[in-house]
Design a protein around this nucleic acid. Structure first.
Lengths: 219, 219
DNA sequence: TAGATTGTTAATCGATTAACAATC
DNA sequence: TAGATTGTTAATCGATTAACAATC
């Protein structure tokens, strides 16, 4: 099984597979077929088999996939079999929420450093982390070997934070601010701006079932 | 311009267009070409033109698009030219964060009702909203004509909340819980589980630049 | 008129799905 | 052996991009 170029669509499905598999595992289900996964996730079973086959032969013909084994394999693929440390900038409500979320995660991703340049935030605690000024970013990133950063500052500060992330060598950024960020192409940006999601939901509210219609948006 | 079936990919780009356009508008830029938008968004200009052309002829040959006019048109398409009211269930940290976010939004999407069944949450205030028990959900949804719901409860409660949303006629759900929800197919689900995003970021950390490699994940 | 840029058709590219031999 | 299900190739489908006539 040679590692071909894996499409983004495939990579985005892997965490979803991991999620159902974790659920199955917690229900002590030991084996699952692509068929069953497909039903659960509304995906074509062939697609699931193909996605997994990019990375190796994880199943058994006539049987299906061993749940725990497949979890391990996907963790390896996503490189979350060891704990991944994450830095977060912006100790507001959202930053707080993500840090908490964090505590319950069994995904081996941990926010291990929090930054904010607001004087009234610096030195406060979120769980067992002390909020630090941005001047400490570089040191922490180097010391802890942090490679992923989360942005939860207001939109107008987001690009600035992104620049600092890039400057200290962060390789992947999860951006919650409603802003379009420019970063060098070797740095990966994932946008998690929830207003975008809400807006596309709004579209379907009114257009659902209109597929066969020929109405248009006119003045 | 007939309304063909619009692909999800197109719908997901519309809010992004709206975002850049809002930014351009705030910088008092009046006209923009698909070329310029393409540079800003890392998209092919032809794609942008095609996306917009599904809904009408909004540009002027030789000139480009009028920023304000295009904003209006996209708002119409997304049906956010009038304010859209949203219900939120789960008054924890994340729920709080989203309600605040809310205040700054110029997107005409407003969280106008917050629910939580925890006794110590009921009756507390988030901004100017009082947290209500779930028993009030139906009444509020009917009274305010709410059609979109946000789920910010823990994973194990998420399906239950989704069921209640469906029962009271909610048409679109934005789910922040790390759970796979089953709803009737006429109800739209958008997942905003940030651990998924983090996991796919993690993939690229270690595989970036491996496109041409032939390494594989072996035992 | 010359230059720019749209809307749209045709060409290309890539992703999803169907089908099936291999095999548990 | 019969039934189930994988991994994978081939067929299909859909989305992106290129190209260009129309026109500002």
């Amino acid at each position: 099984m040679k590692q071909a170029k894996i499409s983004e669509a495939v990579v985005r499905r892997l965490p979803i597979y991991l999620q159902v598999l974790n659920e199955l595992h917690s229900r002590e289900i030991q084996t699952v077929s692509s068929q069953e996964l497909g039903v659960k996730l509304d995906l074509n079973p062939a697609q699931i088999r193909k996605d997994l086959a990019y990375f190796g032969e994880f199943g058994r013909k006539g049987i299906g996939y061993d749940v725990m084994y497949l979890i391990e394999k996907i963790r390896q693929i996503l490189k979350v079999n060891q704990t991944i440390k994450v830095a977060l900038v912006g100790a507001g409500n959202l930053g707080h929420a993500l840090c908490n979320y964090n505590k319950y995660s069994k995904d081996n991703m941990k926010i291990t450093a929090v930054f904010d340049d607001h004087p009234d935030k610096i030195g406060t605690r979120i769980n067992n982390l002390v909020v630090q000024p941005m001047s400490e970013l570089e040191r922490e990133v180097k010391e802890q070997n942090i490679r992923i950063g989360i942005i939860t500052v207001p939109a107008h500060e987001a690009q600035n934070v992104a620049n600092q992330f890039v400057a200290v060598g962060i390789e992947g950024i999860l951006n919650f601010a409603p802003a379009i960020l420019r970063v060098p192409e070797e740095v990966r940006i994932q946008n998690a701006d929830f207003t975008r999601e809400l807006l596309s939901l709004a579209y379907y509210l009114n257009h659902e079932g209109e597929e066969t219609s020929d109405e248009s948006v006119m003045d």
